[in-house]
Amino acid sequence: MKDRRWIALCAIGLVVLAMLNLPDAASRRVKGAVRDGISPLQAGLRGGVRELREIVRYVRGLGDLALENRALSEEIVYLRGEMRMAQELARDNQMLRDQLGFARRFPNKLVSCEVIGRDSTGWWQTVRLDKGAAAGVAEGRAVLTTDGLIGRTVAVSGRTADVLLLADPACKVAVRLKRSGEFGVAEGTGVKPGEAPTVRMDYVLKTADVQPGDEVVTSGLGGLFPKGLPVGRVAEVVLDASGLYQTARIELAADLGKLEYAFVAATEKDLAAARAESVPADVVLDAETGFLEGEGP
C-alpha cells in the first residue's frame, strides 16, 4: 500500500516536472490547443452576455431610440465626409512616401476581433481576442480600438490572441507628444481601484515642453508600434525626486475596462501566411478606406 502511494507521488511529480520543463515550442502548442478548445465556449458566453445587455439596453432606451437614430444618421454623414478627406490625404501621403522612398510603416490591413476573455489568473492586464494566426494575427502587433492604441499581441494561437494591455507594467510604448514633438517611453502603472487605467511617461527632460492636455501618440521608434496611433492625453506633469526629469501621467484614449471589439494591425506578411490557411474574408478591413476587403466606398 505504502509502495503504491510512493509510486503515485513519483508519477505526479514527474507529470508536473514534465509540464514545467516542456520546450518552449511544445508549451506554446499545448497552451494554444487548450485556448483554441475553450475559445468557442468563451465566444458563446460573451455572445450570451451581449444579448442580455442588448435586451436590457433596449428595454431601458426605448424612449431614446428616435433621438439616437437621428444622432447616428448625422454621425454617418459626418464620418463619410471625414473618410473622403482621409482618402485624399492617404493618396497624397502615399505619393510623398513613394517619392521619398520610405518603407510603409503603417500596416494597411486591420483584423477586426471580438474580445472574449481576460487573464484567468489576474496577474497580468490582458484580454483575449477571438482571432488568431489563422486570421492573420501575429505576435507583437499593435492592437487598437476606434479611440486609440490599447496594447500589443503577446501570445497567439490558431484561433485566439492574447493582448497585453497598455495598463500592464510590462507593456512599454515609444511615444511622442503631438504638440511639442517630445519623445519618451510610456509604461503601464497597473489598475488601481476606482481609477481609470493610466500610463506613465518617465524621464522627460526638465526643460521639455509638456503640459496637461497634450495629445500623446506612438512615435514609431523601435518598430513595434506604427507611428501616430493615439495613446491618450497628458493628465498631470510632476518633477521627479532628483529634480532633473519630469514624469507625465497619461490618461488613455481607449477605455480598457469596456473593451468589446479591437483591431489588430496586421502586416502583409501575416495575412499572406494566414491566406495559406484560408483567411475569413469578412474580418479584414482596409485601413485606408475602412471598408471590408474587396468592397469599395
Binding site: 514545467l20 499545448v30 497552451k31 496577474w123 497580468w124
Partner: peptide, 16 residues
C-alpha cells in the same frame, strides 16, 4: 493546465 493556458503564466505553475 487550463489556468496557465488562459494566462501568460508558463505551463505547470498553476498546477503546482
Amino acid at each position: 493546465l487550463v489556468e496557465d493556458a488562459l494566462s501568460l503564466a508558463p505551463l505547470g505553475y498553476s498546477s503546482c
